[in-house]
Design a protein around this nucleic acid. Structure first.
Lengths: 131, 131
DNA sequence: AACCGACGCTTGATCGGTCAAGCAAATATC
DNA sequence: GATATTTGCTTGACCGATCAAGCGTCGGTT
């Protein structure tokens, strides 16, 4: 549990120079209809603090993979917008990400009911700590 | 996977002021016959780089929970030695660690064969990346 | 016995994250 | 409609990890 995220991250950095955190951000953006999202929401999906999200987006912005636009209906807010370059980069990266997950994780859980496992992890990751 | 280690760590820091990394180091030391271990070996067991281990031991040393002694048979080497204070601290801490693991992890995997799960994780954590 | 590469560990620089404080816009209250 | 509070995000300080470079010791070679 301790080792796997680092291993997958290291694989991805080596392979396509895209750390796991940045990959996750791009991926979540790409799954929205207009490739944009508020910082708030994106941070939650990436399991990152808001300040961590800010920093990640800044890194992506300087690489030209993401652009930031003021939110129209709320001038305090920002939208992170996936650029074409960002989309292209994501397309390049996902096969190596998938391979890393397979090799580092899935391969070792072949006897298991993966859907059930996924549900358990999901639940563990989002449960109220006071339960 | 991303969230759980942080959550468990946060629980332990809040509860008994012992971060997970330091807890793990003390625990591994306590399980040796003479409560001492070379830096090398301890780092491997804690899944930490050697420099990370050095820094962790330094933190523990300033709290008086561990002491460092030159290795007799090799003057380059050091032994980390668990002090009585360190042992006592570990005794105080493990119930809250166990509780955190139960609440954050085990509780959500009740339907599973835990032994089989443990084997899979073990394997995933130690496998050669080139497999 | 003098050297030289390998080894064991530490140190300096950096990185990616957190928390807490700050700022500007939005909203509620009076 | 002015003031206070909340909200959305950024910034500064810090923290715990990594990598790369450094230092002292060991062991084999000559």
């Amino acid at each position: 549990m301790h080792v796997l995220p680092r291993a997958i991250d290291a694989d991805m950095v080596g392979d396509r120079q895209l750390p796991l955190t940045e990959y996750t951000a791009l991926m979540n953006l790409s799954e929205t209809p207009d490739r944009r999202m508020r910082m708030n929401e994106l941070a939650a999906l990436c399991h990152l603090s808001l300040s961590g999200m800010t920093r990640t987006i800044i890194r992506l912005e300087t690489q030209g993979l993401v652009r930031r636009e003021r939110c129209e209906e709320d001038a305090r807010g920002w939208n992170a917008v996936l650029t074409d370059a960002g989309y292209a980069r994501l397309q390049e990266s996902w096969p190596s990400h998938l391979a890393a997950v397979r090799r580092r994780f899935l391969q070792h859980f072949e006897g298991f009911d993966l859907a059930q496992l996924a549900r358990a992890f999901q639940q563990a990751g989002t449960a109220d700590p006071t339960d």
